[in-house]
């Protein structure tokens, strides 16, 4: 899946934003379908290192839009499997090194199209080995997860690991209590969580920490009122959500903030009508796709997180999404 941005812009090229906007489901489906025909653009090649993530984002968007058939299932499975290494891990595309992020995307894609058994049938390594690849990236000392053998740690990897292992039914391969302790060490005085102990609270990292706690069955450790207060404070007067205090709104936080709120049963603390209006203003209603904010170029990353945000707040016409 290509991560090429554009061609359209959110909120119509004239900059005029009508008051009543509809979700243009068919246009978004077409937009995603045409992404892979844009191989003549430089950005297509420069974003090769994100291709497997791109497939996951595009595929998820299509499922949310109620058109799971719009991407050819077999070709999708073939592409995923072609990015696998014998270690069990996946690279972003054939020829790229294995990394946690792409391995998680691969498992998520195969799970979405109900093809996890294909790993055993024709993968370079079967399910057991994929699970082991992920589990081996856990630090015995701290409980955190590295992205690859080089050892960079990030709560994104921890969440990704638990997410993929739960899809594979292999959570028993890792030390969950230690991972949970690590997440608690990333909690900050303001109620949020950061990328590592001591790092600033950030909505994207909060999603990964709360999501991991949800998978681990330890949401009891979260101070829901304090965290919910911080998260709801991310909504700006225009309805959009930001990732940190004093930062601009961005459609992708419609997912990170809203899903975190949903996981702690506090989604109603933001103004959902204003949020859906904001997301709709970021779509290109002529050519499809959603941008980070009105007037910017659309791309698949913001398209899927915009749609997921809309689905979460119960916007009609979309398939319901699970916040975790």
């Amino acid at each position: 899946m290509s991560l090429v941005s554009g061609p359209g812009r959110g909120g119509a090229s004239t900059g005029h934003v009508p008051d009543e906007i509809k979700l243009v489901v068919e246009k978004h489906v077409e937009y995603i379908q045409t992404l892979d025909t844009r191989q003549d653009e430089l950005e297509y090649w420069l974003t090769e290192h994100l291709r497997l993530n791109g497939v996951y984002w595009g595929l998820t968007a299509l499922h949310l839009l109620g058109h799971p058939e719009a991407l050819p299932r077999l070709a999708t499975i073939d592409f995923v499997l072609s990015s696998q290494h014998e270690s069990g891990g996946f690279g972003a595309a054939p020829g790229h090194d294995a990394h946690m992020l792409y391995t998680v995307s691969a498992v998520q894609i195969l799970g979405t199209v109900d093809a996890l058994e294909e790993l055993d049938r024709r993968g370079k390594a079967g399910r057991e080995k994929v699970g082991q690849y992920i589990a081996d990236l856990q630090s015995q000392e701290t409980g955190s997860f590295a992205g690859d053998e080089w050892g960079e740690t990030d709560t994104r990897f921890l969440y990704g690991a638990l997410n993929a292992l739960s899809l594979l039914h292999m959570l028993h391969l890792v030390d969950i209590p230690k991972a949970v302790t690590y997440i608690q060490n990333c909690a900050n005085f303001d109620g949020g969580y950061g990328v590592s102990p001591g790092a600033e609270s950030h909505a994207g990292q909060i999603f990964t920490c709360v999501g991991a706690l949800a998978i681990a069955g330890r949401l009891d450790l979260v101070d829901r009122d304090r965290l919910g207060g911080w998260l709801s404070e991310r909504q700006l007067p225009n309805g959009g959500l930001s990732g940190r205090p004093e930062k601009l709104e961005d459609v992708c936080y419609s997912w990170w903030v809203a899903s975190s709120l949903a996981m702690i049963d506090r989604l109603h603390w933001i103004d959902r009508d204003k949020l859906s209006q904001f997301i709709l203003q970021c779509q290109d209603s002529e050519k499809g796709g959603i941008a980070d904010r009105p007037g910017d170029m659309v791309d698949v990353f913001h398209t899927v997180f915009g749609l997921a945000g809309l689905s979460l707040i119960g916007f009609p016409g979309l398939v319901a999404v699970d916040p975790i």
Partner: peptide, 11 residues
Amino acid sequence: IWYPYHVPQAG
């Protein structure tokens, strides 16, 4: 110079 368009944020 290298990204003629808006770069996807993730990249």
